[in-house]
Nucleic acid binder design. Structure first.
Lengths: 344, 344
DNA sequence: ATGTGGTTTGCAAACGTTTGAAATTTTTTG
DNA sequence: CAAAAAATTTCAAACGTTTGCAAACCACAT
């Protein structure tokens, strides 16, 4: 862990000025050919690495941008990051990935850190806690700096910024419509945590679809989960013990749907014959489990790409704080075995 | 996107020196109470954020460390990152997560970037390409700087550095032993890409176990995959068309095992009655699919934690370049339905 | 007035690099 | 050989912050 070699060190060694070394290493034309070669060779030998920190200071820019997400352990989130990186990496930007673990405190801490590290933009998928408590003071300084802020996946209407989200509403609607069309009458919903936009939009799609098809919205058929597979177990068991058992379950995501399927099987019912199951995310595994899972696909990668493009167009009027762009990408129902077969 | 307020701006506004502003904002005792309050209030109002870049330069340290992984879209990798962060975040370190997507070029580029950004340590899980081509020139400058480098998950013997890995060998051995003990005679292996340590260690465990139990090692029963679920489909189909069909399949990871199960079902065979299946990773989903998947668990989080501890102890002799620490954590077989039932 | 002691503020240097302009050295030319 | 031109190198400032040390200011006692 020895000190990095600096341009000054090299200059001292060669009894020349730091300017000369700098120009030599940057192939500046006004440097003598021999000098250039000697300096470059020596720099290479001692493993000189230009100090980017000093450059960032000098240029007052960093070519780095912050990405704050609740979790990375998940197909969808990492697809978003890939999408952002795919657009921004070729342009020389570096991503600064921060994982909040759904905690407001960490989110706030990371915002401060990113601002203080002078990132040139922030992509934010707000944590569950932030949503729950609804306080957005940590974004104030982002506003004061007028730094490009783009909400990804989870939007927050209270703060005027660009956003790229999924049409959860229509995705959910399509899923439930599919269940209705295949003859299901009592469709339960394993809902996410109350208050979150994803959760509520999907719920809305579910509720509205039932309404349009004249089916009742029954409270006993709607139970909260927290997106994790385990959180579906108890609620599903509860559903199966109802006097009027559901004949379909719409899970807020694939994890929950998979958890539900497990319980259904364990209780001796069949999927899809007795109970159809539909998830949300179209995670890679959903096509390979048995029965394969019908699911609503979200174009995670595309979200990231669109968000990156908003960032790149930021100086444009359209993307500005007073009139932010909101992109809503469609989701797509992918029908598989877990909901197959028409019922009469 | 307006310029950040600096300490100089504030000083100009208040007709005082930058030193005074700096001290006031840092609650230095020698600052007049009124001055302090005024300056702090103003700084707060205009959203002043100290410029960490300049501080990093001044102190020639950054309290940030690089983490280079092939992918983050995966339970295991993200558990490792969580582990590292869990230990290092409370101490004020910031992680700089880089995803190589298994490409040597990106890995090399990130190493350079991290060095040049003056990170204080690097955690590296080498990419598949790096492994394949076996060139480690990109690590030379890390060596010259004598910067703490810790291999996580995938070790490379050619470069003297600390490492934390999994005992893949014994994990694989245990998995195959379990299959043998439950009466399986023709155990196939869906191997990973040749040359990678994980792949080869697991293969070794498989091969050695067969040898110890007097079972032949048949080439036709060993086929390569690339860890992804799709990559198991064709190889499994191939296995099922053999004259002497296998009665068990040991997959290099859960994804591959799940892919294999799908094909087995589609061809009309039963798991585990006709063919037992065992995976590797104990990914969260493995307990919830049907049949639930027997798998070898890897303590990802613990890997990250141990690696972080090596980093923290780096000045110690034990962790130094000339005598690096190598920690090998045990893996653990978790038996589920996909391999249940004894056969005679 | 002068000195003492305490409080508060400012100066200047430092971190590593780049870059316009000035200075120096080398080469060319008449 | 001197002058002009060209090639090469150095100087100094800048980015934003901190900090040891010196300076300024104030109140109060002599």
């Amino acid at each position: 862990m020895n000190k990095p070699v600096t341009i000054k060190d090299i200059a001292r060694k060669f009894r020349c000025s730091p300017s000369t070394v700098s120009r030599a290493l940057n192939n500046h034309p006004s440097i003598n050919e021999d000098t250039r070669r000697n300096l470059q060779e020596y720099a290479q030998k001692v493993g000189y690495q230009r100090n980017q920190v000093s450059l960032n200071l000098l240029n007052t820019k960093t070519a780095s941008i912050g990405v704050i997400v609740p979790t990375i352990n998940n197909y969808y989130e990492s697809a978003i990051i890939e999408g952002i990186d795919g657009v921004l990496h070729p342009l020389g930007y570096t991503l600064n990935i921060c994982v909040t673990n759904e905690q407001y405190l960490l989110e706030s801490e990371y915002i401060t850190k990113l601002l203080s590290n002078r990132v040139e933009g922030i992509f934010l998928s707000v944590s569950q806690e932030t949503y729950d408590f609804g306080h957005y003071e940590h974004l104030e300084n982002v506003g004061k700096r007028n730094l490009p802020l783009i909400f990804i996946d989870r939007d927050y209407e209270g703060f005027s910024a660009g956003s790229v989200t999924i049409d959860d509403y229509h995705g959910a609607f399509a899923a439930v419509q599919h269940l209705v069309n295949t003859g299901r009458k009592r469709i339960a919903h394993l809902k996410g945590p109350n208050g979150m936009a994803v959760t509520e939009q999907r719920f809305k799609g579910y509720a509205e679809c039932l309404r349009q098809y004249g089916l009742p919205l029954e409270e006993s058929l709607i139970i909260n989960t927290n997106f994790k597979v385990e959180s579906a177990l108890e609620p599903t068991a509860q559903l199966l013990e109802l006097d009027q058992r559901p004949d379909a379950i719409f899970g807020v995501n694939d994890q929950v749907a998979i958890g539900a399927m497990k319980v259904i099987r364990e209780k001796g019912w069949r999927v899809p014959e007795d109970i159809a199951v539909v998830g949300f995310d179209n995670s890679p595994i959903s096509a390979y489990i048995s029965p394969s899972l019908t699911s609503v696909g979200r174009p995670g990668r595309q979200i990231g790409e669109e968000a990156a493009r908003i960032f790149l167009n930021y100086p444009d009027a359209a993307a500005k704080r007073d009139n932010p762009v909101h992109i809503v990408l469609p989701s797509q129902l992918i029908i598989r075995d877990s909901s197959a077969g028409i019922r009469r």
